[in-house]
Design a binder for these strands. Structure first.
Lengths: 340, 340
DNA sequence: CTGTTAGCGCCTTCAT
DNA sequence: ATGAAGGCGCTAACAG
């Protein structure tokens, strides 16, 4: 390994001078700079990050924590996409990403402790948000910079987070159904412990009420991730006295499941039932009918969270922020106009 | 930050002694160990990883390189899954993962250089394999430990890689179609630059030949990732004089696209056409009809590659390995028996 | 068994 | 504008 000393020796200057050249210190003559830089290139010098971190007490690295993989949800294309968003920022700022997943919540907790205590990273992005999460409490206690993608369960004004306005999004997409003549619209969401579900559902209800439509519990389904369980739920929905003509579903991947179930039962989409959902994942575009869905800008969600986090790590007194990412409805073919 | 010195002072021993109990050095008395450990706990001591790395000249970290995100393929659930596989091993061995993606190939190359030159990581896992890849050549030149998930384009016996036996898998899944009475079977694959495609296609042809069936070019389609392009391809296939009754598709996600296209054209699966594909991603289970697909054990692919890489990093003279992960056909509902 | 010393590669005063 | 010296936190000889 070629070190700063080697470069110094080769150039006939002191190590400190080389160090200054690296930092592009203005009080080094242009001449020596050129000389030193040449030597660096010739020798193939690259700064050793560990040595640098050691003295700088900073790592220029952030950790990204994925939800425990008990969540089957991990197969959701949401994750690669958000990672790309984060990566676009980290790359441009010369930061690295340390990825951390884990089978269980405990494993993740361990890992995070290791990461922050060992000074592996300068900050943490949480790709989930759970009630009474030890990781969150730990990070707060340590006063360690972190941001949550989504909505924190507690201390919302004290935790920087980036999220969509899921309430409004839910309202708008439901309204779209209503405007197309649907008066019986159902809701299928994931776990009601999740804020995404809660918010989108609240938006759904608000749209209904706004239109003077009835909000009925029998029209609302919560299912983890539809396999057998979701199946029955959908069947129940269909066998109602007055089955819905439109469904709001909180996730494109779930929509695919529902869609399949429906068509299997001979119900056609959108002729018999209209579907709308959230995320605008690639999948929603290749499936038939292509899904009308709200684009939540996953990439941007990632980019903004990385940006906010990095700002926080360089300036610890950066104020708490609550960043809201725009959403936009993408109109495709899963909604039909219904004559009254 | 509490350091080894603080612990030493608090315990009344030398820093080196503390260092030794951290390493659980056998020649330290049980008594002092206990004493020191207590102090560590009381003070909340945690080793500083950078300092340690600096002297150890090892980072206990590996980099995972994702394909350039020009590949829309990144939304494939394949990635989160393989990351989990890698994570399961790294976690258990106390390694960390540095994730690296990038918009372009050049960006990735830069990043990898930074990672290896700066001693960020001890080894690299490549989640892609491309012809004349600068990253690969660079890693080889540097003699830096790396493994490829998939099949290297060059120097196959000099590069440790973990892969499925895609030829056999392709053959078996095609044979399954044939055994169900399908004599006209088509093939839809991704870019023919990719080894996965090539291997699976070769298997497909082998099965056909084995059964004495004709291999026809008009039955073979290569499409990046079916949007508009794939659409036409499928239509062409259907309008053939003798349209196929079965299709082998190299990826579940593509299958979903094809499936949708087919049903849109009024072709029923599996009644009119049977479909089989690869990967056994969660999606293939929730879609209707559920897909008969070959499970390539993505998780295991990740785990084995991490294991092989770590072995290589601790023992540079570890021999080159070629690890093949078992596959297994998962029979579901996308294939129908066809009477002759 | 434990303490002392040196040094990993870099940055940063403090001099000059 | 540059050099010399010290130290970041840790480990690894080398002494005892």
């Amino acid at each position: 390994m070629v070190t700063i000393k080697d470069v110094a020796k080769a150039t006939g200057v002191a190590p400190s001078t080389v160090s200054r050249v690296i930092a592009d210190n203005p009080r080094i003559s242009a001449e020596t700079k050129k000389k030193v830089r040449k030597a660096m290139k010739d020798l193939g010098y690259h700064p050793n990050i560990n040595a640098r971190n050691l003295v700088a007490k900073s790592t220029k690295a952030i950790a990204v924590i994925m939800p425990s993989s008990a969540d089957k949800a991990l197969q959701n294309p949401f994750f690669p996409e958000i990672l790309r968003g984060i990566g676009s920022i980290t790359h441009s700022m010369q930061y690295s990403i340390t990825l951390s997943s884990g089978q269980t919540e405990a494993e993740i907790f361990e890992e995070v402790q290791r990461l922050v205590h060992g000074s592996y990273v300068d900050g943490v992005i949480l790709l989930y948000s759970r009630l009474e999460d030890r990781v969150t409490s730990f990070l707060r206690e340590m006063k360690f910079p972190f941001v949550i993608v989504g909505k924190p369960y507690e201390n919302m004004n004290e935790i920087t987070h980036v999220d969509n306005d899921n309430f409004v999004a839910g309202k708008e997409i439901t309204r779209h159904l209503i405007e197309n003549g649907h008066e019986k619209v159902a809701f299928i969401g994931g776990s009601k412990e999740l804020f995404v579900t809660i918010d989108r559902e609240a938006g759904y209800e608000a749209a209904l009420q706004e239109a003077g439509l009835e909000v009925s519990d029998s029209y609302k389904i919560h299912t983890e991730f539809l396999k057998s369980g979701g199946r029955e739920a959908v069947e129940t929905l269909l066998s109602l006295d007055i089955p819905p003509t439109g469904i709001v579903i909180t996730d494109d991947l779930m929509s695919v499941g529902v869609l399949s179930l429906l068509e299997e039962s001979g119900v056609r989409v959108p002729q018999d039932i209209s579907l709308v959902s959230f995320n605008n994942v690639y999948l929603s575009e290749i499936i038939r009918p292509a899904l009308t869905t709200v684009d939540i800008q996953i990439h941007e969600l990632g980019a903004q969270s990385a940006k906010a986090l990095i700002e926080k790590t360089v300036n610890k007194s950066e104020p708490v922020k609550r960043i809201s990412i725009q959403h936009q409805i993408v109109y495709r073919d899963s909604v039909s106009k219904r004559l009254k």
